[in-house]
Amino acid sequence: MSTPETQPPAAAPLEAPTTVAVPTSDIIDLYSGKELNESNALKLAVERPVRLIVTGGPVDFGKTTLLTTLYELFQSNPVAGQRFAGSMTLPAFEQKCHLARLASRNLRPNTQRTVYKPDPEYLHLRTSSTEVPTNQTDFLFTDVSGEMFERAIDSQEECKHLTFVKRANHLLLLFDTSKALRPNRWAMLQNSKTLLRSFLDNDMLSPYCVVTVVWSKYDYFEAASAAEKKALTDFRALATDQFQNDFGTRVADLRFKDIAAQPLRRQSLGLGKGVHELFSDWVSDSTELRKIDLHPNGLVGARESDRFAQRYSADGTNP
């Protein structure tokens, strides 16, 4: 640790994108540490390569929990071969983690709900490779209320306002597993498809953008009864088929993942189940260089429903 390494060209010290030092009398204001607004996020993106991760989904589907869990994982260890290298939004992360920490006196981990604001805000994280510390990557994560996406589902005009989606390297569409047994699950599926269709119809997705359908709160599946598991498996397989059929040829890379960021129903899954894998995707995908591959992983012709069914037998146990 005591031997300094050669400074990498792209890894400058963290600097506030807006005016950092504004002396007022004998006080200098530092960067706020709160969520970055659009202008600050753009400025950062101009200064250095940034990967933008857009997490989409209705209110209470676990978007913020996914991000805070990633931050929490770094509090104890490197994640997916990456070390924490900095953040311009540490206080923002901390505040969002509060309800999951013992200091809150909460009895179960929770996440502060993101308040609806007309303009997007971002959380920032810089990581470095455990193999090559000078190889650093900056991530910006959208931190927007689910209400913003709900409005976009209802209105093409609102959808067009989500201009940040155009710059996304990864778009995550979250499905709440805990809601997949409820009657309104069909609306959940339809809404998500409508949102993605709107993005595509309005040319709002970069041809390099990876779209990942994320089944959040996967612990609900693990804790479900055999009958519920079967129903969930069927519904998820159907949803997967529909996404593949409707969008498989329209997006560069369509993926499906399960996460239980903060598992309440099956704590034995551990904090951040599936988050490492998602983050690994965000790290390894150099979208500028990646070829468009409409049939990733060599699974040409294979239906996701088949793959899902292979992963989970009808009674829900892992094969």
Partner: peptide, 18 residues
């Protein structure tokens, strides 16, 4: 560990001994 990761990641910024 977060501080440790930060120092290792930014060893070109901070020459550290403990």
């Amino acid at each position: 560990p977060l501080l440790d990761q930060y120092l290792t990641s930014n060893s070109y910024l901070f020459d550290v001994t403990i």
